[in-house]
Nucleic acid binder design. Structure first.
Lengths: 228, 228
DNA sequence: CTCCTAAGTAAGCGTCACTAACATATGTTA
DNA sequence: TAACATATGTTAGTGACGCTTACTTAGGAG
């Protein structure tokens, strides 16, 4: 059952046991205490953010999904913001994992591995658009949260690492962090313009995979500074 | 006087003639009808969006700045959204203008001119961060507004045009729209990561000007496909 | 001067984030 | 097992928001 549909029923007062159970299989049905409300709220928040975007997410809806009153979350989170922080931290972990898998599949320190990381970045933005926007959006408080910053840095360290390995293997004399910034910049631009549908207005049907395919070697400075 | 300070006074009920006049020099002071409320609201909206970000903008605040009740805007705009559309359309016009000036100063169809367009793009994002976010943010309704789309396309047409001129002058055999997309992607990524302070977490003190300086020739495929 | 219309106001609806005071489980300790 | 402390819910409320409805006023055309 769709969250949107469920919320409509709730607002109409139709909260049968069945629909409730479908939306939220609480371990403690009908009890005064939910049992695992914190996790349930994070799940509900994630579902709503994915379905309707972070902009349109309301804490009240998450409460309805979880089957508790609107005051209940404040036993587990400081405010609305803190639930989103939890979500973003988990999203960075998933992005790291995807990146790791991509490199592993194509070989450490290879240009193919680095390209695959780029594709993984864009694919993550496409698959998890709402999360991506939350991770790199304009919410300053959210992005300054300690564990969010740490996870972001660890993600980028991966890229530097692969570039350094590549340069070493290929005997290219270059500044790995600088190249990593170039790559990140391009790939981030591609992901942003793609999910915000800005390409559509101007270059409809653009193949972003090929875009990255073509540009990566340029940014990696292939055919330059070679020594071996 | 700061808009924030003025709004505080209003909420406290301190609306002396002086403070009111400072914030909004209405042509029709104290009158029942404002006289140019539409423009006044756009100005107030712009000021508030710049000061506090589009996320934190409320129509009610704009009304207080303009000195009217919260129902007044609906005589001039369909809803909150429509005021923002007006703002975004004007922002695209300014971006176009900056771009034009940058090219003119460095020469049509030159690599310097194209670089200057990139710098202008990033500089616009820095100077008018809130506007830039509104223009390329995730508000779908806003971005589909007819005049917003048209202005965006016209902006990008400029870039294609300059790249095509450059290729022609230099005798480079290449697909101008494709190269324009590459450039836009990179520059947009740089602007986004810069204003959202994502670079800071990972590469503090990064010089974005140099970043563009270095990458532009690569994306313009200098030293490739040359015929002359 | 009268009437029409454009452009304001006042009051109110439903929703939101968040708070304070109260109620009920749960688990520890005597 | 009883009593208490603490964790985790609820009820009821606050003030702000976007937006609507019904009323009021100003200004121009006939």
């Amino acid at each position: 059952m769709n969250a949107a549909d469920f919320l409509k029923s709730v607002k109409r007062g139709i909260t049968t046991a069945m629909t409730k159970a479908t939306a939220e299989p609480a371990p403690n049905k009908g009890a005064y205490h939910h049992g695992e409300l914190r996790e349930a709220l994070v799940r509900a928040t994630r579902q709503l953010v994915v379905e309707r975007g972070a902009e349109n997410f309301t804490l009240a809806d998450a409460c309805r999904l979880a089957g508790v009153t609107t005051a209940a979350p404040y036993r587990h989170f400081r405010d609305k913001q803190e639930i989103l922080e939890e979500l973003v931290a988990r999203a960075f972990d998933e992005m790291s994992e995807r990146s790791r898998v991509a490199v592993e599949a194509h070989g450490e320190g290879t240009i193919e591995g680095i390209r695959a990381m780029g594709h993984a970045y864009v694919q993550f933005a496409v698959d998890e658009t709402a999360m991506f926007r939350l991770m790199f959006g304009q919410n300053p408080a959210l992005k300054k949260a300690a564990d969010v910053v740490a996870r972001g840095q660890s993600c980028f360290a991966n890229v530097i690492n692969q570039v350094a390995l590549y340069c070493q293997r290929e005997g290219i004399q270059a500044n790995a962090p600088e190249i990593a910034v170039d790559l990140w910049t391009f790939v981030h631009g591609a992901a942003s313009l793609l999910i915000d549908e800005d390409y559509e207005k101007v270059a409809p049907g653009l193949d972003v995979q090929r875009l990255i395919e073509n540009v990566t070697p340029r940014l990696l400075r292939v055919d330059e500074h070679r020594e071996a």
